[in-house]
Design a protein around this nucleic acid. Structure first.
Lengths: 216, 216
DNA sequence: CAATTGATTATACAAGTGTATAAAAATTGG
DNA sequence: CCAATTTTTATACACTTGTATAATCAATTG
């Protein structure tokens, strides 16, 4: 009584894990957390459901890994432009950083959906809460540094408390525009959010920032 | 073979519906959307699970009603202070409006969790998308009006396009601070978000707004 | 190329899910 | 106070969920 089994190709561990994580994020992005069942994930990744447990002891582990992956990608995409222009002045660097978080693929309904789906787990799971906290402060500290340098350059240095508040405010502008762009993608012109973001940050810290981010 | 049935009190339709909606929102706030099962909701509302279907044809209906209820409450709490001071000047009214959305119970982990839990459904369900759209533009249009009046008062009227962008930016500041306050409640002092919010909006629109919102 | 190891599939299972329906209790009207 | 109606409970059901395990196939290695 031999059972006929489908043919398959073996993949490396990281390939499989990434494929499963991608399938998970893709499903959460489109159908929410409820759409990310083990069976749906397996189907989306073109494997059978048993394989998931071979790579992840539990579904919770897969979900947690997917969250880290998503946040890591957001961070990476946002920081990349900054790292590729180490020789520019502080004002330009700050403007670039702000704008890079306000265009696709960071601003995106799916990206927002994934982030939102994890919020509750972040609040209840200690590990995820720590990941979230780190991501947030990584952003904010970077902003604070960029703002400090820009203010020094302009000859208007601020106090530590002042810097903290400016960083919180600037971060809020970015997060708020990111949120709105993801929640109502049709309500804004292309590139509009980035322009508004840079202009607002410019006003908040009291420094003229270069707006016309050359598309190259 | 008569079965022993528990005693109970009958309640009015609106009372029951509200109780079920409250239980739903409470569960979503603490345990996320997955925690809001019909059985858990019924237990939280001290009824048996069958009753839910008596008041709501389907669980989807209950969820949708809960979403409307939550958004309506947020709107109400934010607009209440504004409506209670119709005789104040535009600047004061704007500052009050901004600040009222940046203190509890609007800024709150549970409130954020509920909002986030619905984001995906909002993107996929036409009815909920419309509710969301209306809520957003109700806020933004109100902000735009307050900003317009404040600018006129200060003798710096802006163009329509300029006003639109200022409203988007101001709304983003509020949303961003709201989001951060709900996601990391321990990261900010009490009242800090409101102060930063008013100060930022002040800088963005270029008008001095009264900061010290008297606690009365 | 045979044998062993490791990856993948197939299948089963218990628990939880939303929904459906009949019985029982509470309320109302005559 | 009895009959009719509405609200609430109790129970059942089919389906989905995450997990567990054994069979089977692919790759590696000697």
């Amino acid at each position: 009584m031999t059972r006929q089994q489908l043919k398959y190709k073996r993949k490396s561990v990281v390939n499989r894990k990434n494929a499963l994580i991608d399938a998970t994020l893709s499903l959460i992005a489109s159908k929410g957390i409820k759409g990310a069942t083990v069976r749906a994930i397996a189907q989306h990744a073109n494997v059978t459901q048993g394989l998931i447990r071979y790579y992840f002891n539990t579904k919770e582990q897969l979900i947690t890994a997917a969250y880290r992956h998503h946040m890591g990608r957001l961070t990476q995409v946002t920081f990349a432009p900054l790292n590729s222009m180490p020789e520019e002045g502080p004002a330009t660097r700050l403007a670039t950083f702000v704008a890079s978080g306000l265009v696709p693929p960071v601003v995106d309904p799916g990206s927002l959906s994934v982030w939102a789906s994890f919020i509750n787990k972040v609040q209840n799971d200690k590990t995820m809460r720590e990941t979230h906290r780190e991501t947030y402060f990584e952003f904010r500290d970077c902003l604070e540094m960029l703002i400090r340098e820009a203010l020094v350059e302009a000859g208007k240095p601020a106090s530590e408390e002042g810097l903290r508040q400016l960083a919180i405010a600037t971060n809020a502008v970015i997060d708020g525009l990111w949120l709105e762009g993801g929640a109502l993608p049709d309500a804004f012109e292309r590139g509009e959010l980035a322009v508004i973001g840079v202009r607002s940050v410019s006003a908040i810290i009291g420094i003229d920032l270069p707006e016309g981010k050359s598309d190259k």
